[in-house]
């Protein structure tokens, strides 16, 4: 499969890149590691007029741990994060998660920013042009149907536009850690919580405004305990069938003050189980409580049949992962 034709730009600054990206005359995309983008372009689900290469812009790849806390540049490769001693010491869960993305080659090429902005996935969408040609085009590629939830004949309930699933490894971890992101647009910068980057809409999963580019990720001081559990068939290559980032903070008396439960692979963005989190506050983690919390959490996710794995199985595994996380934390 060949890449479709496109114009190619190597901007010198983020500002220049943001302006090019905002231009109305060209449908542009950003190239970082390319591990997600190039496959989608070869599959012709994305056919941009222009590709803007961010890798030529200096000083976007860094891991800095200064007085304002840990900051990671968006173009830092996953491999650098997985192997950084500073991160291994400061936020080991982050290097662990980076080391579980795709396969080694993806980690060497793929960047943190690219991973956070990776496209939603669907078994009807992430396929070649030939494959998709067997069916009518779906919403995600400009068509009028979602093959995951086809509209019922004779009208009835109007289906949600696109049910594609967010399958990133890094976002749940970074949301659980309460990180912020700095984005640069044609008219300046803004900083907001990473969780707000995700719209939970399959067709347009990111909340970035026109021309905005993810620049860096900002970490609060490390606290509590965090776990990342990724469920997949093989120990390499795969996206999570479902994964869980879990972060917990206890007070001096070992009482849970705060818990974050974020899943990947079970919704149109990273999904936070807010009610289950509330249950954990001040709770003591006995078997009954663990069962209760995980039962609650799986009510808060809505996996769809967007991969070869059934929604019921994803839900079941989400509960099992959370139980495992709670057992680990409590022991």
């Amino acid at each position: 499969m060949r890449l479709p034709k496109f114009e190619y730009l190597e901007p010198k600054t983020l500002k220049e890149a943001a302006k090019a990206l905002a231009s109305d005359t060209k449908e542009s995309v950003l190239l970082a590691g390319g591990t997600d983008l190039l496959v989608n372009m070869k599959h012709k689900v994305i056919q941009p007029k222009q590709v803007i290469n961010l890798k030529t812009i200096p000083k976007l790849a860094y891991i800095s741990n200064g007085k304002d806390g840990l900051r990671i540049g968006a173009l830092t490769t996953l491999h650098d994060i997985a192997s950084s001693q500073a991160i291994q010491e400061e936020v080991p869960i982050l290097s662990q998660a980076a080391g579980e993305v795709g396969a080694y080659a993806h980690q060497v090429m793929g960047t943190l920013g690219g991973n956070l902005c990776q496209g939603n996935r669907c078994r009807f969408y992430n396929q070649s042009a030939f494959w998709r040609g067997v069916k009518s085009p779906c919403y995600k590629v400009g068509g009028k149907i979602c093959h995951v939830v086809p509209a019922r004949a004779g009208g009835g309930r109007k289906p949600k536009e696109c049910h594609s699933t967010y399958c990133g490894d890094m976002a749940p971890v970074l949301i659980a850690l309460d990180t912020q992101v700095r984005v640069v647009g044609p008219n300046g910068e803004r900083v907001f919580p990473l969780s707000k980057l995700y719209t939970q809409e399959g067709k347009k999963p990111l909340s970035l405004r026109k021309g905005e580019i993810l620049k860096e990720i900002l970490f609060p001081p490390p606290s509590g305990k965090a776990l990342y559990l990724k469920w997949r068939r093989r120990e390499s290559i795969e996206f999570p069938i479902v994964s869980l980032a879990f972060h917990i903070e206890k007070d001096g008396n070992e009482r849970i003050q705060k818990a974050r439960i974020i899943f990947s692979g079970v919704g149109s963005g990273p999904v936070e189980a807010l009610e289950a989190e509330k249950m954990l506050k001040n709770a003591s983690l006995d078997d009954w409580m663990i069962e209760k919390v995980s039962n609650q959490a799986i009510k808060e996710i809505s996996p769809m049949r967007t991969s070869i794995h059934s929604p019921a199985y994803k839900r079941k595994m989400a509960g099992i992962l959370l139980k495992q996380a709670l057992e680990k934390i409590s022991s």
């Binding site: 068939r233 093989r234 120990e235 390499s236 290559i237 795969e238 996206f239 991969s307 070869i308």
Partner: peptide, 11 residues
């Protein structure tokens, strides 16, 4: 090779 589960070296 992404979706077809042929074992990798890890398995």
């Amino acid at each position: 090779f992404l979706d077809y589960g042929i074992p990798t070296a890890m398995e």
